[in-house]
Design a protein around this nucleic acid. Structure first.
Lengths: 121, 121
DNA sequence: TAACCATATGTCATATTCGACATATGTCAA
DNA sequence: TTGACATATGTCGAATATGACATATGGTTA
């Protein structure tokens, strides 16, 4: 991480330890966000595959349509727990959830480029 | 639902009211609890492997010793998010976290018996 | 156009989770 | 015994996540 960013955060009142320590936390936060986004996409995909509305999924998990919408857009206000509960409520297995949590998304663009490069070479 | 399951959950610190109440726990909720317990055990295992105290882990994740203790005992008041954040902060990979989330615990005794049976047969 | 349905967004009162603190328990060495 | 250290538990005010509601947006059909 850049020193300038650290300075900025410190100026804003954030207590930052060593740069290395901060890096670890930053990575953890980023991974958490990525996990949530991945889970959110799966919620939407599963719901659409089952051809049910957000309203119906909401009822299934004891929530409301608006919260389901927030879930699927990985809104800041949604917890990991609710995301996972939603998947499980739609019939996902622990293994499926674990797979989503544990799998980093690969960029399709990057993959395409790599493939092209191989063909060319 | 089997009484053995109830016992298991209670042993893990999840106080369950009446049996009838427990019966109303959905499969999804039970899976969620099991995931939390598995993650909690991993937090403790990783911390001990790194030979650091709860106090130090607390500082690493910006929390307190008491909360880390609650984390490791899978207290009701701890979120999935904090459990995962703790693992990531100690250097766990997404793949590792995913593996814990997605893997149901199998009884060693049961496994041993199965193996023995195979040998015998 | 209008009416309808699905989804997104903003707000709010309540519920849950948070860090922090006090304190209890347990272990080990002086 | 005492004291120091690690961990567990109970509580509390603050922070965050919740369901619910109103409403906006976008697509489809009459």
């Amino acid at each position: 991480m850049k020193a300038s960013k650290k300075k900025k955060l410190e100026a804003a009142g954030w207590k930052v330890g060593s740069a290395a320590e901060f890096l670890e936390l930053s990575d953890a936060e980023e991974m958490l966000v990525n996990m949530k986004v991945a889970l959110a996409k799966k919620v939407k995909a599963m719901r659409q595959e089952k051809k049910i509305t957000q309203q119906r999924l909401a009822k299934l998990i004891g929530s409301s349509q608006s919260r389901v919408a927030k879930l699927e857009t990985a809104d800041r206000s949604v917890s990991m727990e609710l995301l996972i509960r939603s998947l499980l409520s739609m019939g996902a297995t622990r293994a499926q959830v674990g797979s989503i949590v544990g799998t980093r998304k690969t960029k399709k663009v990057a993959k395409a480029k790599k493939k092209k490069a191989l063909v060319k070479g």
